[in-house]
Nucleic acid binder design. Structure first.
Length: 257
DNA sequence: GCGACAG
DNA sequence: ATCTTGTCGC
């Protein structure tokens, strides 16, 4: 089970906006955007074949569903595509969604769900940004640092930063770097993540938008993108995220309908 | 004042 | 995120 390593950096919704931003700068200073993994990222897949001998790493997907003022946080842990554990927690939400401060709304509920885990993931995928954040401390980075676990941010749209090329109609498998600009604390030009086209229609009129992948903690930008691509299997979202998404919806339906 | 931004 | 019918394309 993962345990809180930095209680001083937990997302406190009662902080003022200024204090939240100050905490994010502190988190960014504690975060590592370099690989520090317990497994070989080049051998990761969501299928059975992987590193011979020691077996694939435990990968967790985290996602949430909402119902009134409550958040249902779900975590699904799998190894080589096989589900190892599923947990969820229902938590009261105390503050609204504010761009740039997402972890202060959803971080607490996620911590609640993590407390239910009995296994310790080698990698955690979050729904949102990591380093692609004004102060380089998005949800994935915040949670990664609090638990000191390798993490990756998987977002469906870009919060900030500038793509080095167009991200429209990219072919499947394509990857476009996202660089820090004046809106980001990192030095301009620093690659803080990538647009990753995990899926695309072969032909036709419509096109699928790429995923926005960024390092959370203990993973570099290239590896984060490669891991998400390796964990994807025919759908836009990587499998760990899809499983968490489905489980969150399932848990939610237990409460309403 | 304008712009604008994860879930 | 959530609210929702239809509609296009494989």
């Amino acid at each position: 089970m993962l345990s809180v390593q930095r209680p001083d950096l937990l997302p406190d919704p009662a902080l003022s906006r200024e204090e939240m931003e100050a905490l994010q700068r502190e988190i960014a200073a504690e975060a590592s955007f370099e690989n520090d993994l317990s497994f070989d990222p080049a051998a990761v897949t969501d299928g059975p074949l992987s590193t011979p001998g020691e077996g694939p790493p435990l990968v967790a997907g985290v996602d949430q569903a909402f119902l009134d003022d409550r958040a249902i946080s779900a975590i699904v842990v799998s190894r080589g595509g096989e589900i190892v554990e599923r947990v969820y927690a229902v938590s009261e939400l105390s503050i609204p969604y504010i761009p740039g401060l997402l972890s202060f709304r959803e971080g607490g509920p996620i911590v609640d769900a993590v407390a239910e885990l009995t296994v310790e993931p080698d990698l955690v995928l979050f729904d949102g940004s990591g380093r692609i954040h004004f102060r380089e401390a998005g949800l994935a980075t915040h949670m990664g640092v609090v638990f000191d676990v390798p993490s990756v941010g998987v977002a469906k749209s870009l919060l900030c930063g500038t793509p080095t090329d167009t991200t429209d109609n990219l072919p499947e498998g394509a990857r476009v770097p996202i660089e820090a600009d004046a809106d980001v604390t990192a030095a301009a030009g620093t690659v803080i993540g990538h647009a990753v086209q995990t899926r695309q229609y072969d032909s036709g009129n419509r096109s699928i938008n790429p995923l926005i992948v960024s390092p959370g903690h203990r993973v570099d930008a290239d590896t984060a993108a490669a891991l998400v691509a390796a964990l994807t299997d025919g759908y836009k979202l990587p499998e760990p995220t899809r499983r968490a998404d489905a489980y969150a919806e399932e848990a939610k339906s237990l409460f309403d309908g």
